[in-house]
Design a binder for these strands. Structure first.
Lengths: 144, 144
DNA sequence: CCGTATCCCACATGATACTG
DNA sequence: CAGTATCATGTGGGATACGG
């Protein structure tokens, strides 16, 4: 982010309106909800964590089990991802006081509701991504 | 959706196991369609470009007009975003030979179909992001 | 007008090591 | 077991300048 330049380089977003549509006095959409959501889901592990927790719903999943079901994730990234989801109230964290400690995670109702739009994305992806891959390869070939 | 156990092997989503059924994963899956889609939509300008082009559909939009409707985007990022979309066959590019040249962009049918799952995301975001923001602020307050 | 080529930096992610 | 701390790095993306 640039220093003291008051003008932000990013403002209006997916809620971009037609100039004639309605007079939005503000014009500046400091934080478009869709952008914010995409920023979260776009993270490398967020959607996978939601998926894994969603599959276990309404059961709880422990940290190590979560890690086991998300091959490739590091402890750091898993913890960070869960933190973020917890902060957003999408995930609930329950600590079982014991030695060693046990920590259980589950989706909140809000988090569970997210699985629906994600499912829409997944369905679209399953149906069309193969074609997109082909198109990409063809494009690469045709290029010079 | 069941609360069954087991690793996530379901085809089509954020699949995580190796194709050879190795059991526990050693490698993460690079070819999950949903992951690929999210990587694209997660880009800073992709979804906005789709939105703007979708609003204009079936009309075409020229480069400069697109840029005008996407405040904050640089020429580099706009060109790069459009290239990527074109490569994916989500966007069609038409060059009108003239001086100065005119280039028109429009969504393909495939690209237009993407607006539906995106709309699902947007609806969810508009309905719930405010609450998520609150939760984040409360969380920040509660934890020093 | 419509791009591409460079440079640059913040940041997301990964590897590793260390605690309670 | 469930994290946090630290360091290294690849890259997305912004600024700027040049070219067709």
């Amino acid at each position: 982010m640039n220093s003291e330049d008051g003008t932000v380089t990013e403002r209006g977003h997916l809620t971009v309106t037609s100039p004639t549509g309605r007079g939005r006095g503000d014009l500046f959409d400091p934080a478009c909800p869709t952008r914010q959501l995409l920023d979260r889901l776009g993270g490398k592990w967020t959607s996978m964590a939601v998926k894994v927790l969603g599959d276990a719903h309404p059961g709880e999943v422990r940290f190590a089990e979560l890690k086991r079901r998300m091959p490739g994730v590091s402890q750091k990234m898993l913890a960070q991802t869960l933190r973020s989801l917890e902060r957003d109230s999408l995930v609930d964290r329950r600590v079982e006081a014991a030695t060693p400690p046990r920590v259980h995670y589950r989706l909140t109702d809000l988090g569970a509701s997210l699985t629906e739009p994600i499912a829409a994305l997944r369905n679209w992806a399953e149906e069309h991504m193969a074609r997109i891959d082909e198109a990409g390869l063809a494009w690469d070939r045709a290029r010079s």
